[in-house]
Design a protein around this nucleic acid. Structure first.
Lengths: 253, 253
DNA sequence: CCAAAAGTGTTCATAATACACCCATGC
DNA sequence: GCATGGGTGTATTATGAACACTTTTGG
């Protein structure tokens, strides 16, 4: 930002002692959604290696490096440190700031949603984390459960208010999927995908089966006719009739 | 938040020195929308009494009182201090955190949208502000203009990145108006309003004329039939045919 | 009577949903 | 051939926009 200031203001800024004002810590927390091998909605969780909530599972994220990065950059950096992913699709979700959400001190959390295909996730827990895992999201009478082949975690066992953040993220994702192009970010390969694969992603997020003919119709109307997606000459064979492949035209969504 | 911790953790928390970590300042900034006397989309701006950007116009808002309030409470408090309004409709917009958006130091801004009918706005500039005003939002080749009977302000003359925040707020408001009940918050009296008055609010926000018969149809379908709004026995006379009055059933929206 | 604003009804295009049916492949 | 998933077409209903028309008031 270009900011021209007077001599008077320069003097003010020089003697401005930022520490006069009490300040909160600021972190980013990232809700990383993916689809597991059976196309079920899943989330990345990190086992904390430090207090508070040591040994508890939590969202990936960490403190803002003040003066060195924006909060968007912080989210990207933390995501890279903990998953190896660069240039992921990230969108800001909400900012949480109750004074009691962290036992240490006031910690403002700016939360983000990331949508990343599973094969791109290379879990590499950073210094703050001992362990990382991808967990299917399930539900029972007490709320959400996060489970994989080794572990099942109750939502009440998550660190901080992260269960709440996840719940809000799921709601937002479900609402966005109808009018944003989010689903494309979960494709295995945006340069070669089938309508069925895209439909499966929508079904997983909306948690209900969709009608293939109708899905195809809106896909062709909304994406192919508008030029956002191009039909490839190639087809792919598995069982049944060979399947047409499509690719995104604009690169990333 | 109930947080039970071990003796080991207690020790950690006691020796935890929050100031080890560099921290940003956190503010809330509030985009207060209203309709002026001629039903034009307007916004509340404050003339800053202090550096930085002294004498420049800016959004109302201020620093978070760390440990004493949540960010939602901070937004409500600032709004009350600068407009006298309590319990206004506030919804979180976006959080801005570029390191260079404030010349002093890194300042994270959590922005909010407020929708307040003009007659409820009692402008009382706080200690940080010399002057407050309601400005109609106009546009020309260089972007937004904010003008009232005394002054016209170019968007480039606003403090900080507030022009950008306002632009994002307007976009969000326009998108929300179609599926959220925001418009009701701008009614002069939620217990006695006409379909025309509500339509005018929608027209102002969407900045285009709407068809009254069609507007009525969706209003009756979406609000009256569902019970959110009740038709009153009363009518009101002005020019032409007397107008039916409606009231919100659930109190505030 | 006329202007003005409220309120009603009709038409048309588009979109969401449900579902019947055909097509091309592997086995 | 036949199971399997891909792909096409049709009927139904809901929604949104455009617009003609009627109603009730004040002047």
């Amino acid at each position: 930002m270009r900011y021209q200031c007077s001599e008077e203001e320069k003097a003010f800024l020089q003697q401005y002692n930022a520490s006069l004002y009490e300040r909160p810590s600021v972190t980013t927390d990232i809700v990383v959604f993916t689809l597991d091998d059976l196309d079920r909605l899943s989330i990345l969780l990190i086992k904390r290696g430090q207090f508070p909530y040591k040994e508890k599972w939590a969202l990936p994220g960490g403190f803002l490096h003040v003066g060195k990065e924006s909060i968007d950059e912080c989210a990207n950096r933390e995501l890279k440190e903990e998953t190896g992913i660069e240039n992921a699709f990230l969108s800001q979700l909400y900012t949480f700031g109750s004074p009691d959400r962290d036992p240490r001190t006031t910690v403002i959390s700016v939360s983000y949603i990331a949508l990343i295909p599973k094969h791109r996730l290379q879990l590499c827990a950073g210094d703050d984390a001992k362990e990382a895992g991808i967990f299917q999201i399930k539900y029972d009478v007490d709320g959400m459960l996060f489970s994989n082949s080794q572990t099942t975690i109750r939502e009440s066992d998550l660190a901080f208010d992260h269960a709440n953040i996840i719940r809000i993220a799921i709601t937002r994702l479900r609402n966005r999927i109808d009018y944003e192009d989010d689903a494309f970010n979960l494709l295995k390969d945006q340069n070669e995908f089938t309508i069925s694969e895209l439909k499966k992603i929508h079904e997983t997020i909306k948690n209900k089966p969709l009608d293939l003919p109708n899905f195809r119709k809106s896909f062709l109307r909304d994406y192919v006719k508008s030029g956002k997606v191009k039909e490839l000459k190639k087809t792919i064979n598995s069982k049944g009739k060979p399947t047409k492949l499509y690719k995104l035209t604009g690169g990333d969504v």
